[in-house]
Design a binder for these strands. Structure first.
Lengths: 257, 257
DNA sequence: TCTACGAACTGATCTTGGTCAACAAATGTA
DNA sequence: TACATTTGTTGACCAAGATCAGTTCGTAGA
């Protein structure tokens, strides 16, 4: 099944850390200048079921993936067979950009639930962008944003205590859902406790304890994978730097459009 | 003082984590296809003394910086006035790319010693790259590499114990110096203990203790800022994942040239 | 329904590394 | 030279979070 998919750089104003994503790939109706030219890219639109891999570490890189719906986990193996979760990605996120430099993927990506994924041949993308400055700008912006987000994650993970990490993680998800018109305080988590812990650099037990602690403090209500955030202010107090980072993202893409 | 500086994408085969750099900016004599066109970029070549800032957080972004010699520290302020060191950068590193997306810098960059810095107006760079695919490729590759390095740093900082972090840091520097023709086992560190600790997410005291511990174990000899690495194998054993990451970088840029 | 297995939760220890404090060495200043 | 200030080292203590162990819960398969 091949479809024409438009890329909308006006973006549903993204604006939050950890969201990891900007609405670059949406079947938008309203026409913009750059749409006509971007229609030239014929994008394969794939369905992935839970457990299906988008790509594996060491696979050759030739495709950029954009999540249109669902959630994806990226991970790699550090040293022995130990899995290291490197990211939890939701709709709007571009995957695979870190492989441009080497030509092959350094991590694996697996669907956590049923996902709809745009697949764009990178060679084609690169070729078209040569003639279309705006597409080139988009690419640079997306990658720049990813670098800045990673920097934020770095300070979060290297210096912040366990509670701040989890709070920051939840706030990021909240932002993401809210911006897409879903509830920012009531959502489901497709990651297991084990994966959350791994992603945040904590032990599973610590994550478990934090969830119950947060609940006892009235910050949230948790029932297995279902989360209800009750006290956003309280969570923000736990996660210093989140507000500042979110502010930065408010300005993202203003320059493009 | 304005000079013409060539950009050599053949690159002195970089190939190591933490090095953070590829020899994109060098006054190379040998001519290559892309050189003629890149000569069009008139690059300001600046000298910075210790303590001079290349840019400050919240500055407008309009220039990309390339370190030709010396070392630079990037940092930001997290929450209150607490400084967070986000990077230690040596010759070859491009700085400022994370600001493309927002249009302003999210961190500050300060020279740690006398530095020679190429300054390229980004608008010019962007404009020229529209007509010169190879420059565009370089940009994408550089940014892709930075993303991948950040991912590595993330796993290093989130999961590895203190000794592994310091070992990884030292091995990265070692790689860098070796590849530029300097000694990979005998070098000076322009970062203070405080900054090293901050960068690695540790306490100053821990870094200090680790240096003496490493010395007692015969891994290295340390005298203030002067380091002599004695047992690279031993250090690598402490820093799992380093070898794998270094391997990845071996292939970097092979595709470009 | 029973059983089995994995995911999640909770409690009891132990370890790593942070904090506090004192001191030493190096650098800067009158 | 004496003194002050910054930078680095070392020791004693403490706390955050990892590890180990046991239990409960939820889902899948017979």
């Amino acid at each position: 099944m091949k479809t024409h998919t438009l890329i909308d750089i006006s973006g549903g104003q993204s604006g939050c850390h950890n969201c990891h994503l900007f609405d670059y790939c949406r079947p938008v109706g309203k026409s913009r200048q750059e749409m006509q030219l971007l229609e030239k890219i014929t994008i394969r639109n794939h369905k992935y079921e839970r457990g299906d891999h988008l790509f594996l570490a060491n696979d050759n890189f030739n495709t950029v993936f954009i999540i249109r719906s669902g959630s994806v986990k990226t991970y790699s193996y550090i040293q022995d067979g130990e899995e290291q979760v490197t990211g939890y990605h939701l709709a709007g996120k571009l995957l695979g950009l870190d492989a441009i430099g080497t030509g092959y993927h350094s991590q694996s990506a697996v669907a956590l639930e049923t996902c709809s994924i745009c697949e764009i041949p990178f060679a084609k993308l690169e070729h078209i962008s040569m003639h279309h400055p705006q597409l080139q700008q988009i690419l640079l912006h997306v990658m720049s944003d990813e670098i800045r987000e990673d920097h934020y994650q770095l300070t979060l993970l290297s210096r912040m205590p366990a509670a701040s990490r989890l709070a920051g993680f939840l706030l990021g998800l909240s932002c993401h859902f809210q911006q897409r018109g879903y509830s920012g305080t009531n959502f489901n988590l497709s990651l297991s406790r084990h994966d959350i812990a791994n992603l945040l650099g904590l032990a599973v037990e610590t994550v478990s304890r934090l969830f119950t602690q947060f609940q006892e403090e009235g910050l949230l209500i948790v029932d297995r994978k279902h989360i209800i955030l009750n006290d956003m202010q309280g969570l923000m107090k736990l996660s210093p730097g989140h507000a500042e980072f979110a502010r930065q993202h408010q300005t993202v893409h203003k320059r493009v459009s």
